[in-house]
Computed example of a mutant assay.
Amino acid sequence: MFRKVTPGDKALSFHFEGGVCSAEPGDTVALALLVAGIDSCRDSVVSGQPRGPYCLMGACFECLVVIDGVQNLQGCQVQVREGMVVTRQRGGRHALGDTLS
């Protein structure tokens, strides 16, 4: 399980799948989800199996999420903002923006 070594006193809150998570300023979405105990943030386009953050540096694309309605964002590359809404990436992405099942 991931946890902060030195937790700070300023917390941000964001929404994930209908719940509220907290993060510290500067935390990425992927890190905040892992710290909250959420290890799956998308489903595989091929098999439908749950996938989660792996490299945490933008190389693997396993941490794709939908943030404030924008699909295909790498959670490890986006810093948490107060009140943002994050949902799991389900399926692939159409050229017009809606997801495939």
Rank of each mutant, 00 (worst) to 15 (best):
M1E: 02
M1L: 00
R3H: 03
K4N: 02
V5D: 01
T6R: 08
A11G: 00
A11R: 15
F14H: 07
E17I: 02
G19A: 14
V20S: 10
C21I: 13
C21Q: 15
C21Y: 06
G26M: 12
G26W: 12
D27A: 11
T28P: 09
V29A: 11
A30H: 06
A30V: 06
L34R: 04
L34G: 02
D39Q: 08
S40M: 08
D43E: 08
S44I: 07
V45M: 04
V46F: 14
Q49C: 10
Q49K: 15
Q49F: 11
P53Q: 05
Y54H: 11
L56K: 01
M57W: 12
M57D: 09
A59M: 15
A59I: 15
L64F: 13
L64G: 13
V65P: 14
V65I: 07
V66G: 12
V66L: 13
D68H: 03
G69H: 08
V70N: 10
L73M: 15
Q74Y: 10
V78E: 15
Q79W: 00
G83N: 14
M84S: 04
V86L: 00
V86S: 04
T87K: 09
R88F: 00
Q89W: 02
Q89S: 11
R90F: 12
R90S: 13
R90I: 14
G91A: 11
G91E: 14
R93C: 14
H94W: 10
G97Q: 09
G97E: 11
D98W: 13
L100S: 06
